[in-house]
Amino acid sequence: MAAGTRTRARAGSAERDGAPHGADENRAEVLRAAAIAFMAHGYAATSIDTVADALGATKGRVYYYYRSKTDLFFDIHRQAMTMNLSVMRPLASSARPPRDRLVAMARAHATLVMDHLPTQRVLNQGVELHLSGRTTAPQRDVLDELMAMRSQFERLYVDVLAEGVASGDFRVLDPRLGAKSVLGALNWMTVWYSPRPDESPETRDRIADELATFVLHAVQAAL
């Protein structure tokens, strides 16, 4: 085989395996496929083979970016938390009254779950993995980092609830417990929500509005 032909063959193989051309998008495709696999099978039952099947590629394409399913799982968790924080921080820190901020946060939270269901479900699996203790010391270090991100996210709700209590808008004995209740209701969407093939944006808006209203009614003071 001529040198030029060998080079083209290697380049074609590299592109099919996700490198180097379009590396970011190829990595994102691997993460999306892995999130779908974890959502369908759970962490324990998912393997690199499972991810490759969901991706419609060979294991080599997955291994090019990730050495293990645990690395994949952690990266999905990290990217999802980064996305969630980037959406929620501006809403929590706005100059609007606590009541309006809480509604906006709950609505955005519900929308994140509906728009990114596989990755949001992986977040909940990450909590289960953390609580189970079935991890190595290095894995626990990474999980501790990811749980710290979750704590930052939860703190946004705690602070808004505390401000609402101080202003008389909310009736919550302990904003920390109140935040856990709110997050429990919103995160439970990852269990019961399943998009229909004909689901419209208007339907998703209605679901988000209903949940935001439920959250507000759960914490607001009697008029």
Results as ranks from 00 to 15, higher is better:
A221C: 00
V103Y: 14
D174H: 10
I36P: 04
V87E: 14
L156D: 14
D49N: 06
V122G: 09
E163Q: 15
E154R: 06
T82C: 10
R6K: 06
A9H: 06
S93P: 15
L31I: 00
Q139N: 13
W192L: 12
K69R: 06
M189S: 14
A23L: 08
G168M: 02
H130P: 02
S86E: 13
K180P: 05
P90L: 15
E199P: 02
R121P: 08
D49C: 01
D141I: 07
G18T: 03
R99P: 06
D205M: 05
L31C: 01
R101M: 13
V113R: 08
A45V: 04
H77D: 11
P118D: 09
S181A: 09
M88Y: 13
E128Q: 10
D115H: 09
L146R: 05
R99K: 12
I36K: 00
G133F: 12
G60I: 04
Y43Q: 00
L186Y: 14
R121Y: 08
T119I: 02
A218M: 09
P195D: 07
A54Y: 04
H77F: 01
R10K: 01
S200P: 02
R121C: 04
I207G: 02
G4H: 10
E199D: 04
F170S: 07
D24P: 12
R107K: 12
H116E: 14
H109P: 11
